[in-house]
């Protein structure tokens, strides 16, 4: 087994539900509730789930936009391992900032409207004081070429409002890649783009991941997009990973009842295709102080009170080779 580039162990994010300023909180929202996964070099892991399942929170913790409240995130950095949730050293933080980058969802809002493309892309270099100005200019030009915004000099000093949505997202990709990161968190990078532009942006990301050996955590609600982009997919439900497997394995043989419901609800661009019925009950529940039982219990079509209702949330177990499921009722399959 190769060394994982990113390894997430029991990662947890709890938000206090403050009742009063003077009393410390008793209730917590368990936004991310002890999740584990690893991402190998050059691999792209998809994190899918409905809104509120904790996928964005996870992504934001991995880039240190949110404080981790429990667990650890281990990052491989040229032979050494840094626990990014407990960085105290300034140099470590600097190295982390050039190892891990993020691409945001909204190409219209993720660029400062008053700064030029050059300022935006060169920002990581500027703030980390890397290179001289001519170096930075050359690097920005190189990245603009790389992401297909050519000729670079005609894009370099444009403002965001002078670019289309697809071009802005290319700029965002260039900004993320300028420090040669090894790991990029992409939070729904194409969900705001039109279909025709979406594919070229996804292709660009795939091509760059391949050439630069970048690992992605690709956060999306769209399983079809995840299938196109990711080597493996993790399905999240109420702060827990309920299933994690190779993309085609997960889509072809979903084991967790939630994954099955999710997959059967995805519309298919083929009128002759008959989707299986969506077997799920009720609506999504809140994750404030969850009861000690399976998170999916209330909505599960196959839940058994004597098993799922009395035990804590099931652990993520390898039920088939490289196919991890968190469900008591899914039998272990022979390898």
């Amino acid at each position: 087994m190769t060394e994982a580039r990113v390894e997430v162990k029991d990662l947890e994010k709890r938000y206090p539900v403050q009742k009063s300023v003077f009393r410390s909180a008793k209730d917590f929202i368990h936004a991310v509730d002890g999740i584990n996964f690893r991402i190998d070099p050059g691999e792209s892991l998809g994190l899918v789930g409905e809104s509120g399942c904790g996928k964005t929170t996870t992504g934001r913790m991995l880039v240190k936009l949110l404080e981790v409240t429990g667990g650890e995130v281990l990052l491989q950095d040229s032979g050494e391992v840094i626990d990014i949730s407990h960085i105290t050293d300034k140099d470590d933080l600097k190295r982390f900032r050039s190892d891990v980058q993020m691409i945001f969802q909204d190409p219209f809002e993720s660029m400062n409207p008053r700064r030029t493309v050059y300022d935006t892309i060169a920002e990581p270099l500027t703030v980390q004081r890397i290179g001289t100005v001519p170096d930075r200019e050359a690097k920005v030009a190189e990245l603009l070429n790389l992401v297909g915004l050519t000729p670079a000099e005609s894009f370099m000093f444009r403002f965001p409002h002078e670019l289309s949505g697809g071009q802005r997202q290319r700029v965002a990709i260039a900004r993320a890649l300028i420090v040669d990161p090894t790991f990029v968190v992409a939070d729904e990078p194409t969900s705001m783009l039109d279909v025709s532009i979406r594919i070229s942006v996804m292709d660009l990301m795939l091509k760059l991941a391949d050439r630069l050996n970048v690992s992605y955590l690709y956060i999306t609600h769209d399983l079809a997009v995840a299938r196109y982009m990711c080597d493996r997919i993790a399905v999240m439900y109420l702060g827990k990973i309920v299933e994690l497997a190779d993309t085609e394995d997960l889509l072809g043989h979903p084991m967790h009842p939630y994954t099955r419901a999710l997959l059967s609800a995805v519309p298919v661009p083929d009128p002759s295709y008959q989707r299986p019925p969506v077997e799920i009950k009720g609506g999504i529940s809140k994750s404030i102080n969850p009861e000690p039982r399976c998170r999916f219990y209330d909505r599960c079509p196959i839940a058994r009170e004597d098993i799922c209702g009395v035990q804590d949330h099931p652990p993520l177990e390898e039920k088939a080779p490289n196919h991890w499921v968190a469900c008591y009722l899914v039998d272990k399959q022979p390898a």
Binding site: K64, V100, M102, S110, M111, N112, E123, V127
Partner: peptide, 9 residues
């Protein structure tokens, strides 16, 4: 974009 700048370091 403020988050993006934060991630940039």
């Amino acid at each position: 974009f403020v988050d993006a700048a934060r991630v940039a370091g």
